[in-house]
Design a protein around this nucleic acid. Sequence first.
RNA 1: GCGCCCGUAGCUCAGCUGGAUAGAGCAUCAGACUUCGAAUCUGAGGGUCGGGAGUUCGAAUCUCUCCGGGCGCGCCA
Length: 602
Amino acid sequence: MLGPSTPGPHLFAEMQARVRDAAGAVLGSGADLTRIVVEPPRDASHGDMATNAAMVLAKDAGQKPRDLAEAIAEKLRADAKIEKVDIAGPGFINLTLKGEVWPDALRAVLEQGKTYGRGTVGAGKKVNVEYVSANPTGPLHVGHGRGAVFGDALSSLLVAAGFDVTREYYINDAGAQVDVLARSAFLRYREALGEDIGDIPEGLYPGDYLKECGAELAADYGDKLKAMPEAEWLPIVRRRATDMMMAEIRNDLARLRIVPEVFFSERSLIEGEEPDPFASEPPRPPADVVAETIAALRTAGHVYEGRLPPPKSGNLEDWEDREQTLFRSTDFGDDVDRPLLKSDGSYTYFATDIAYHKSKFDRGFADMIYVWGADHGGYVKRMQAAVKAVSGGKGQLDIKLVQLVRLLRNGEPVKMSKRAGDYITLREVVDEVGKDAVRFDMLYRKNDAVLDFDLAKVIEQSKDNPVFYVQYGHARGKSIFRTAADQGLLPADPAALRKADLARLTDPGELSIIRKLALYPRMLEAAALAHEPHRVAFYLYELASEFHAQWTRGGKESPHLRFIIQDDPQTTVARLALVQGIVTVLACGLDLLGVEAPDEMR
RNA sequence: GCGCCCGUAGCUCAGCUGGAUAGAGCAUCAGACUUCGAAUCUGAGGGUCGGGAGUUCGAAUCUCUCCGGGCGCGCCA
């Protein structure tokens, strides 16, 4: 038996196990019980829980669903936790639980506190969650922010479900883009030396954010870089510029309470790890992991030299039919094979990404999640093909595409001119509306739905704005405790709430809230397995809504429903225990989403 | 032309991996503050779940096919 404070199986999991046992007893071994689910009924009048057991098993058993339901129901009627079993509709088995189940369920919340809802389905399995991975060529924008918030919340969710999660950021510091960045920074360096650089040429980054980089280079190197050929100054400037951009990016993410644990450099795959200046061993020659990966794939028969048909659209003027090095991704479900080398002999982004994902697999991550912008949708199949190839079919890559964000202000699109480099940055948005509004708003939507982000509405302090609605629920709960303390009705010993006579909570609204609290672990587990953090946000909204409704019921119509009853300390303590349960779950859920749970919001 | 995503109330969106009479918020209308915080709550109206066919005890959910919108389609990441 599990001790009272051990996060054991939650109520729904427990009842599901009991139903499966009952069905197994009726049908004998060999029956597939995995499709049996126990869920809350659509209508509360159907009881506390419903199961599809009879309907999913009827065919295999060769019985009518309702007959089978009756047989299973007979077993369940003997269950100590079940008060009543009904059969309804096509063969649903509706369960009404014994009255004492609900006080016990609330007590579990109070006993487990911050650990309530945490599960073990993850079983300590290692999962790599990669997100953001924006090019270090400019400030993060709001779209990056959405991917970052999503990846971070999903990671927290998986941790809560018992997975061993690593949050990772892939630095694209090896492609042509960072060379462009370096040339742009070099221009700012010449400008810092007093040169008139005029307009920024087409194709370079025009934003002001590189001026500081240019100034630093001028301070450190004087005019020495100017005397060098590009091949010499480029790596120096590139390194300085990407380091500065990454520092900015990390700073922007930190403002959103996002701290990736691993920053993985694309360049390190090609040139090897940065030599450690304090190492006692002589530095090893740089290893080209990409070349090794391609060679291994070639040996395995997944790489060949060949030609591709011309693309179906786009400009065919610069199309040149040539033989190239191709990854046979069609063997793994892709539509066409994919090139690994550019015409100048350097690696394609895809080639380094294959090596990168091999690195993930080699580091022990059979489960990988990749959070990507929706404009990368065309790359999903080839990446999943690559993971299959480098992991021998043992790796699993779930790619979550995050749709674009439309920035609005009072319903009007915010004008952005990328060409002039004056687009709204993520930092500006976070500074304007705050971390909590950004995070909750972005999570209060499925990842694959386009998000309208209205700068005016997200700071509105009304029920129109879900984040304030939920946070207000938490603050209101805390407010009840303050009032109870003022009136001398709050027990000094926190343990007193756990010992309260919770059977006094008999109002339908109160029982409904307890049922909702009992649902939290089940919701968390499902959200984690589905990789859908938005379910947490919706759950919290619903819980807050039930709490607000119960609060208002204690108005002048029904003062006996108030949480604090001056002349009835016993009932007051029981209701304070309920409030404690609500506050605990709201705080836990908000924490998963990275949103604060304030004690007051005046 | 091909691939992926989306289409649910006037608007913005959920719908718990196939369950019972499809739900919230906004907006509209009608109500509740000498309150434990009205940043709240109660009620009403509002639907061929884009159309059609199929799979089965049962479909918003799975398959196919159209319609409409978005993204992508060597040598950008």
